[in-house]
């Protein structure tokens, strides 16, 4: 019995000593298994409890001592393994070290802006579709009521392709309207993001390529008021609940009536500042009721009604994030790109 109790004290002392030597977590765990594990030394002592040499009194005393040692050992290991600061001299957890996260990339701001615009219109019941960047003259112009030798072509200075006659780089996303309507009849509501091209020299506010999001809703009973409401609902989600839009009569060959949509300048509360060029309003979109000639071009019956709109993604991103040079989008300097979420 004495020998057994000595052995127990020895085990306790040994564990204390080894743990105070601040072993690494694996060594501490090995030590724990050695002492407290299923086949560990303490269990060996417990198993000796059933030996026939002990009388009941001895057995109970031994049992009590064994349980006490077990409790103490468990406590020792718990303290060690939970690493109470100051409780051990081992490497402590430095809470001020930089956190670690596998490095992820980001989406380009134009993608983020396009996705946001599109997602809002999806929420309003629009479906997203796409179209090709090389277009026919017919889809890009004639079917949209922009005849050759008409001054309205001036706003669409277009790139043509050599050795591919009658083909051009689309100067707006509107030809997708034509493609879609030739494939499918009303009612529908679609939104069309995409890249477009105009023969503009590159400077801080112009580029020969940019991105648009086009919208088209056709169905019985659609009104000009629905166009206003849809765009207003979009603007409030895009720019915040306080956003205001105003609609100004304008001219587009493919809509009648036509309007330009201006966003109230949030910097000056429409009083006029340098951002809005003292106008108080920022032009952000063009829209209108689809011109009957467009419906005629795709073979829809007379009396069909619908609205269409289009907006520039770069322009909206520049307004939203205070970007003053369109070239930043295409340079891909990571110091610019990584400012976006």
């Amino acid at each position: 019995m004495e020998e057994l109790l000595r052995g127990l004290e020895g085990l306790l002392g040994e564990v204390r000593e080894k743990l105070s030597g601040s072993p690494d977590p694996q060594a501490a765990e090995a030590l724990r298994l050695q002492a407290l594990g299923r086949r560990g030394r303490l269990n060996e002592y417990f198993s000796r409890l059933s030996e026939p040499q002990w009388n009941p009194k001895e057995r109970s005393a031994l049992g009590q001592r064994l349980n006490a040692v077990k409790k103490e050992l468990t406590q020792l290991f718990d303290e060690r393994l939970t690493q109470r600061p100051g409780a051990s001299r081992g490497p402590h957890l430095d809470l001020t070290l930089p956190g670690f996260c596998p490095p992820a990339g980001r989406l380009h701001p134009l993608t983020q802006t396009t996705d946001r615009i599109t997602a809002i219109f999806r929420g309003l019941g629009f479906s997203a579709v796409e179209g090709p960047e090389i277009e026919t003259e017919e889809n890009n112009f004639e079917a949209l009521n922009i005849p050759a030798d008409h001054p309205s072509r001036e706003s669409f200075d277009t790139f043509y392709l050599q050795s591919l006659p009658k083909l051009l780089l689309r100067s707006h996303t509107s030809p997708v309207q034509i493609r879609f309507m030739k494939a499918q009849g009303p009612p529908f509501k679609i939104v069309v993001p995409g890249r477009v091209f105009r023969r503009d020299a590159v400077d801080a506010s112009h580029c020969f390529q940019f991105h648009q999001v086009e919208g088209l809703a056709v169905g019985p009973g659609i009104t000009f008021g629905d166009l206003k409401g849809t765009l207003l609902a979009w603007a409030k989600q895009m720019f915040g609940g306080q956003a205001r839009l105003r609609f100004r009569p304008h001219y587009f060959p493919f809509t009648e009536p036509s309007a330009e949509g201006d966003l109230a300048c949030s910097l000056c509360q429409s009083r006029g500042c340098s951002v809005c060029g003292q106008k108080g309003w920022l032009e952000i979109l063009g829209c209108g009721m689809v011109h009957p000639a467009v419906f005629k071009a795709v073979g829809f019956p007379a009396g069909t009604v619908g609205f269409a709109f289009g907006m520039g993604v770069e322009r909206i991103a520049m307004l939203k994030y205070g970007i003053n040079d369109i070239r930043l989008f295409y340079e891909n300097d990571i110091r610019f790109l990584q400012q976006f979420p």
Partner: peptide, 26 residues
């Protein structure tokens, strides 16, 4: 005055659901 036109939302989606509408989404 365009500003005197009340802003509303189209009723197309409701009608569209009633008919067999091909999925437009690409």
């Amino acid at each position: 005055g365009y500003e005197r036109c009340p802003a509303t939302l189209p009723a197309v989606s409701r009608q569209a659901l009633g008919r067999s509408l091909k999925p437009a989404e690409d």
